[in-house]
């Protein structure tokens, strides 16, 4: 994981960017508890493909989602760069399998734009906005929607 530390200007938010389903997403750094290497999880029966199973995180049983599958972008292909982002929402702590983590971005809050109206994009339900950065579109993940996600 390469980090690029810039002096954070006032009113800026730090995001961790990562890729899932060949798209770039990001999550506010304050929501992230840790980033772990992928290890096999305990599968749960009769669950949709985006729930991989549960993992022991220091005595707590936390669910692990395949973020790409949750976003309707197909299962994450197995890869040694795969990591699990452990994030805590108000209600729950969850792990999210992603292809890889890229960098930490410091974004001024006014740089976050509303999500363009892309009806076809299933991921849109899980996005609070987008950031244009170095000519790529970074989608800001709505953690609450991912955790609560019954519209998977």
């Amino acid at each position: 994981m390469s980090t690029q530390t810039e002096p954070a200007p006032i009113d800026s938010i730090e995001f961790v960017t990562f890729s899932a389903g060949n798209q770039i997403f990001c999550l506010e750094i304050t929501q992230i508890r840790e980033i772990r290497r992928w290890t096999p999880v305990t599968a749960l029966p009769h669950t949709p493909p985006d729930i991989l199973g549960v993992m022991n995180l220091r005595g707590a049983v936390i669910p692990i989602f395949d973020l790409s599958a949750r976003f309707g972008l197909g299962a994450t292909p197995s890869n040694e760069r795969n990591v699990v982002i452990v994030a805590a929402s108000a209600s729950d702590t969850v792990g999210m399998l992603v292809e890889s983590v890229s960098e930490i971005l410091s974004i001024e809050s006014d740089q976050i734009q509303e999500t363009p109206d892309l009806k076809s994009d299933a991921a849109r339900n899980y996005i609070t906005g987008v950031i244009a950065h170095n000519e790529t579109m970074i989608r800001v993940v709505d953690l609450g929607a991912v955790v609560g996600g019954d519209n998977a």
Binding site: P45, V54, V61
Partner: peptide, 13 residues
């Protein structure tokens, strides 16, 4: 350990 609600209810578990 209860399974988190985010997994939904799992039949048989």
């Amino acid at each position: 350990k209860s399974l988190k609600t985010s997994c939904g209810s799992i039949t048989g578990i």
